[in-house]
Nucleic acid binder design. Structure first.
Lengths: 228, 228
DNA sequence: GCTACTTTGTGTCATAATCACGCAATTGAT
DNA sequence: ATCAATTGCGTGATTATGACACAAAGTAGC
């Protein structure tokens, strides 16, 4: 039985789209490269997959060493195969996306990058490689995901107001959703739980605080919104 | 700027789940291997990705050389990374799934396999590698896909009866769907078009024949069925 | 305290979609 | 002509959705 690792194989990169929700804006984390190719340009954080490493292990390594992050929600997005996507040669990219509450983590640029910064998803700079394609795929996935998975659980604080959840949905989906119908839909689905406390110190009526219902299984919730 | 193909990289395989619908049963195409590992065992058709090959090109090559098939519906499924998934060493698998009308194609085993055969999806033999996991992932994907994409277009003949379409949905989803409500839903959505002709030669009432509405865009159709 | 203003929470009603059926029409076999 | 099986069409109850009105709770200014 022959072994195959003696073959000349394409390299495998793992690239990450890290989403954060901050000041009513959905953002993504980008890295400013300090080496060629695309030196001083912005790209998604990523790295080559090591020989015995799983994809998730590579993701964790990237998040930890390049940005000082750990234990995020991670999901495989898609694998990209354009033979011209990397000027150095044939590199397959297996893309993952992560969700993070930017208030709960502090992003720090690792030594392998000039800088790490949040960019609002509709104000991205030019990206190296085929990372714009990867990014757009991730946004589409997130839009689909939020309709049947409690994405807010990863993006918001542990407790949050109905308005915050509502704004998150409008922001991610890019559409207006009637505030009162949204409330009814979310509550009827048992999607979130009223903590019984209210947020104080605001100018107007103090909103009730909620947490996500962790007992809710997958596919228990579905927001019926027709995207276009 | 260094190049990276000098590194020792994991190998990349492309594996395929080919679905067909035949005699009211959803089946998948499996290959009987004629070499180690898993010699004489059943696996999904697959191959190593060549250096300058796209995933789709690899899929076409596999379908053509191993089974004599071409021009199928193809969609990327998922990438699998278990370091122990291949006894020969580290091999990443990028899985695709295909849909085919078995009546329109003749499956022929290529010289690289002992045999190629259709297996009903709930009567699969033991599979080599991690192909059972890949297969289950594909079935889940197909169940989700059929709710908002005209999967039947790929699996059925050009023209088909309402009953055939109905049975396909029940079969893929594994649930009972009320025949009359299904009909109304499908017709109201403009999902299919009545050809005006009927299928003759049957014992009972001759059913009308339909074709899929090719002008229907993505996401125009959604069957509201709560799985579980 | 009273009023103005903003935000949050609750309800209502028309419309649309879904679900669970009944029943008639069409066909070949008897 | 009758029967059995299958297909096509319809109907009413229930539920979900969309578009609102309006009350309640809070702060600020007077």
């Amino acid at each position: 039985m022959k072994t195959f690792n003696s073959y000349k194989n394409p390299a495998i990169a793992v690239d990450l789209v890290v989403f954060g929700y901050h000041d009513k804006v959905l953002s993504a984390l980008l890295l400013n490269r300090n080496e060629e190719p695309f030196k001083d340009g912005w790209t998604l954080p990523g790295s080559f997959l090591q020989m015995e490493e799983t994809f998730r292990a590579a993701c964790s390594r990237i998040l930890q060493t390049k940005m000082g992050l750990s234990d995020l929600f991670l999901e495989q997005l898609y694998s990209f195969d354009d033979p011209a996507r990397d000027p150095r040669g044939r590199v397959i990219s297996v893309a993952y996306y992560a969700l993070i509450n930017p208030h709960a983590f502090n992003v720090v640029a690792g030594k392998m990058a000039n800088d790490v910064k949040w960019f609002p998803v509709n104000k991205l700079p030019r990206l190296g490689f085929d990372h714009k394609v990867i990014f757009k795929t991730a946004v589409e996935r997130l839009k689909a995901k939020i309709l049947y998975y409690p994405v807010g659980f990863e993006l918001l604080n542990d407790t949050f107001t109905m308005t915050e959840l509502h704004e998150l949905y409008e922001c991610v989906l890019g559409i207006d959703i009637d505030r009162r119908n949204f409330r009814r839909k979310i509550l009827d689905a048992g999607y979130i739980i009223n903590t019984g406390t209210k947020r104080a110190g605001l100018k107007n009526r103090h909103p009730e605080l909620y947490t996500f219902n962790k007992k809710l299984g997958e596919n228990q919730f579905q927001l019926h919104i027709q995207i276009e």
